[in-house]
Nucleic acid binder design. Structure first.
Lengths: 318, 318
DNA sequence: CTCAGCGGGAGGTCCCCTCAC
DNA sequence: GTGAGGGGACCTCCCGCTGAG
């Protein structure tokens, strides 16, 4: 719970800190959504700071582009509406149109995790496959005994992949970065600098996806692949689900603001006996399913329902 | 309703365009959330393009700041995690801490609409109050007959405020902009340039908050306040509610990803008979209320439920 | 290894101006 | 009014380097 400078380090609790800061700042709802997104993308998803900012400006560019279409392709009007220079508006329009024509990937948060992180376990296992029974590493500089010692340190649970030395590991990162840049137009590509390489290496080690091995008798460090995914399976799935749910919920609410037919929004604020919380939620779950079953008819009008229920916080207001 | 430019124009439908573009681009959920936010803030809320981008970078800065706290105030580690220069990390930390200490407003989407737009009707009515029975405008350059003609053009429904000439109108914008900048530290303040003034004037006229009057016999244009709010009341309220709901939903889902006790998430995908849609939703509404009433007990554990239900779209997946 | 400084380049956000249709 | 160009200021995000504890 506590954290503090210098001396103690606090690795595990992530959210509490965020909520603490948020509660002290009285922030608007729109800003809060941005912050939740940023935290998820940058801390859990592993996106770079710059990548998030770029994705946000991309979203803003799309807003400009749609305004442009809605106002009869009038550059000047679009410029006035959003307070963007006509010259810049033209550049934005062109950028978006080029992407639409080529079907290239425009935006920068294209996946929950950046490819150079999430793709690594796959590429590693593919390029350096390990067959059970064979040695995971084979280095002429080591005596057979030293090799065996190292092998025995490796947990059985590690994915079937060989142990690499630093250069092989860095090459892998380089390869992945190159592949991840292929989708982008040449102009937007980012060179793989030393700083970026270090960043990627750090995230892979820090997350436990890759583990560094002690090799006192070797001058070059060795690395082992410890997980098949960048993020732990459970967490990863849940964060994915959350973002999908929020996006769907957002879209439904947009329909609601337009007062479309057959769209409903509900907010329930209430208190329950502490020992009946779980019971209440279980009953709600059952109610919803029964309700959906009751009205379901194959091939009918497509419907969607998104719900979240839990502990109310002061920031929630009302 | 109509206006025109060149050939075809398309003023009314706003969302359809956005959805069209979105559906062609197959965009990730995180990006979709950003886009929804950008569209709402920039097109409906009237925020500037730059304001949205700044708000997003502010969110990213907060993410960096919390990382910094969670890693024992280690600048270098934070730098590696997010791929931000140590120098820049330090600047970000300082910026956030200064804000936390002074309680100043950090972020830029502090309200749904920017103050220089939403505050105008109030200031206008306050500075140029109009008493029924008195003339709305009094200009010595006009004959009594001409004044009367203009007065008669004004709908009764207009708020009780006098008609202003261009200079008075621009002064009002200037005053509002100055007031809206007071909360910001001097460094971040933006000068009221001609371009910005034109942007604000355009938005006020374009939204119908202010209406320009034809004055053939006068060399200076006249303006009348036509609405008491920047956005139409209903729409305004609904957009507010939507953003609040999404923020609350997002927070609940974060609790869910952490597998907290007593948090529930539900997604129902189903089809119904077209003619039973409304009936189904009404019943659902009733079910929820009954359920909440059943478990409610004053002073108990604080609970919150957010729900949205409506038409399923292809983009929704599953 | 961490902290600290200073150098640079590219690109984006702002500002203002003119000229042709 | 709109389109299309010119200029310049400032900041931010990237990169690289060196030196002090």
């Amino acid at each position: 719970m506590t954290h503090s400078a210098k001396s103690t380090v606090n690795e595990d609790p992530q959210k509490p800190e965020v909520d603490d800061v948020l509660s002290e700042l009285d922030i608007s709802s729109a800003d809060r959504i941005l912050i939740y997104l940023a935290v998820n993308a940058m801390k859990l998803g592993g996106h770079r700071y710059g990548a998030f900012v770029e994705a946000a400006t991309t979203a803003a560019k799309l807003a400009v582009y749609t305004s442009y279409l809605e106002h009869g392709n009038n550059v000047r009007k679009t410029s006035l509406i959003h307070h963007v220079e006509p010259k810049r508006v033209r550049a934005i329009i062109k950028e978006v149109q080029d992407v639409l024509e080529d079907g290239k990937s425009l935006t920068t948060l294209s996946d929950q995790e950046p490819y150079y992180l999430s793709g690594l376990p796959y590429l590693w296992q593919e390029k350096y496959t390990w067959q059970p029974g064979e040695p995971r590493l084979n280095r002429s500089e080591l005596t057979p005994g030293e090799q065996q010692d190292l092998e025995e340190k490796l947990p059985e649970s590690y994915p079937p992949a060989c142990v690499l030395d630093l250069f092989q590991f860095l090459d892998l990162i380089k390869l992945l970065h190159t592949k991840s840049q292929e989708d982008f137009p040449p102009r937007q590509r980012m060179a793989l600098s030393d700083a970026l390489t270090e960043h990627i290496k750090f995230r892979l080690l820090h997350s436990g996806t890759v583990v560094r091995m002690d090799t006192p008798s070797l001058s070059i460090p060795l690395f082992a692949l410890a997980r098949t995914h960048y993020a732990p399976k459970g967490e990863r799935e849940r964060v994915f689900t959350m973002i999908d749910d929020v996006a769907r919920f957002f879209r439904l609410m947009q329909d609601w603001t337009q007062e479309q037919e057959g769209v409903m929004r509900a907010l329930e604020v209430f208190d329950v006996d502490s020992d009946r919380r779980v019971e209440a939620l279980q009953e709600l779950d059952q109610l919803l399913q029964n309700w959906a079953d009751k009205y379901h008819r194959d091939g009918g009008y497509p419907m969607l329902l998104q719900l979240a229920a839990g502990t109310r916080q002061p920031q929630d207001g009302q």
